[in-house]
Nucleic acid binder design. Sequence first.
DNA 1: CAGCTACTATGACGGCTGTCATAATCGGAT
DNA 2: ATCCGATTATGACAGCCGTCATAGTAGCTG
Lengths: 206, 206
Amino acid sequence: MTGPVRGSRERMVFSAAQLIRRDGVTATGMRDVVTHAQAPRGSLQHHFPGGKQQLVNEAVDWAGRYAAKRIARFLSEMPEPSPSLLFAAMVRQWTDEYQTTGFAGGCPVAAATVDCAHATDATRQAAAAAFAAWSRPVAQALTDMGVPAEQAGSLATLMISALEGAILIARAEQDVRALLTVARELGPLLDAASSDARRGSTGESH
Amino acid sequence: MTGPVRGSRERMVFSAAQLIRRDGVTATGMRDVVTHAQAPRGSLQHHFPGGKQQLVNEAVDWAGRYAAKRIARFLSEMPEPSPSLLFAAMVRQWTDEYQTTGFAGGCPVAAATVDCAHATDATRQAAAAAFAAWSRPVAQALTDMGVPAEQAGSLATLMISALEGAILIARAEQDVRALLTVARELGPLLDAASSDARRGSTGESH
DNA sequence: CAGCTACTATGACGGCTGTCATAATCGGAT
DNA sequence: ATCCGATTATGACAGCCGTCATAGTAGCTG
């Protein structure tokens, strides 16, 4: 709707995100991105005058927005949403990919953080923004399910932390075990936070 | 005890781990490692005939053994150990570093996984072994605290996953918030698993 | 002394990287 | 037809990378 052949520029950002999450930022060359996106090499300096940094930052931004949209989609597909079901859906996205496509890629935001957090501050900020964009709809969904507002943000951070860590372990082990484990162990805790609130209990832990 | 000036070889492995966790595997050059370790460049091909791959793999191995030793030390320093206190100690190691030294580095095993899991299978296996070496003493400690054996491994995976993810987020945000959050939110769940078991409860979980 | 092994020094090689300078092409609007 | 901005093509540049070939030194053993 905006571009002619669906924007070669957008294709490059998308391809960058895909290659980054597979090989890391430093190991991903601009020529690789151009090839993967089937885009003209000459367009690079026109669309991304800021060089590789700009391309990487936009890829990280895109990943953050993508993750946020997935949360919305998960919720819309859920007849009776609950915290544990949302987390299970987030995890299942990864187990599905790993079981069908293989363990080639991880999270592009994690890759950018590991590779650029120290060397390139702008990319570090982009990663922080991506985590925030991802976390916001999760926390909002938790409050909608009855989790007290001051705990929703914390649980969202916990969910994303556990998911990111499990992705790492699953990729290293080439086994979805870690992903299934965190979903199983964390589910009851998440649901307890929403049902406790629905019951109106304030002081707990006996 | 084995080397003359405490082994230039060991220094290179250690420096490799430090640089990898700061800049990532690909961005860390062998010349950088030699410089950082103040080691003779000519020793590289003698001590690491397998090239960069061998050096990286040994650095990952070292990191795994180091993490395992830290668990043992945490436990030995704890008068009355509990799952939540162990996890708090694991988290505090990172908040301490970040608050005193800055947010320069992350976990070297995570960096190796992100950077090499797809390209270099041997490094991926080294990362998996490091996670296993790290997880084993955690699970053992949990069983010693009364967590049922079949749940101890799962909780160890959950702890390491949440910690790794929180490290990522903390580094991106340059704020220890995520680390403090996972410690606070996960603590009660961990202690419940050990006290439940001590009470002898067997079947429920839904 | 020689001889052997462990370690170090040095320089070079091909290949890849991000970036840039320059020019060509294309699509509309005038 | 002419012009102009947006897009693309192409080639080159300096710099870094991991690796290797070769030679040298130190230290122990005979």
